[in-house]
């Protein structure tokens, strides 16, 4: 776990040094479209799932999506799409 965190920290610094977009070096990218759609790239998997709260691992980050009628619309190894009424997105 420490190794991964160190690696992600290194990637983040590399992106900053070379002025590269974070998602290119594998950092999670969260895109919110209005209240109804959240798209995330480079996720590390679902940790908890419910209609009012979905917890997604972003590696070093933990993304907590709160709302109502939440649904995991699509999910691949790298990307996921959450729909519903999103009230908040918290990073931990």
């Amino acid at each position: 776990m420490d190794k991964n965190r160190k690696k992600e920290g290194l990637l983040e610094r590399t992106a900053q040094v070379f002025d590269l977009p974070g998602e290119v070096v594998g950092l999670p990218r969260v895109e919110l479209t209005g209240r109804g759609e959240l798209r995330m790239e480079n996720h590390r998997g679902i940790l908890a799932y419910g209609q009012e709260e979905i917890l997604v691992s972003g590696g070093k980050l933990l993304i907590r999506v709160r709302g109502s009628g939440l649904e995991l619309k699509a999910m691949t190894g790298d990307e996921l799409l959450i729909t519903g009424t999103i009230l908040s997105v918290e990073l931990e």
């Binding site: 998997g45 679902i46 799932y49 419910g50 209609q51 995991l72 699509a74 999910m75 190894g77 996921l80």
Partner: peptide
């Protein structure tokens, strides 16, 4: 069960209509 979901996503298996009645 979320681990199963994550493995499905990594494997590239298409799924939808996810419902989580209990933990």
């Amino acid at each position: 069960p979320e681990r199963f979901l994550n493995l499905c996503a990594q494997r590239g298996s298409a799924f939808w209509g996810v419902d989580w009645p209990d933990s």
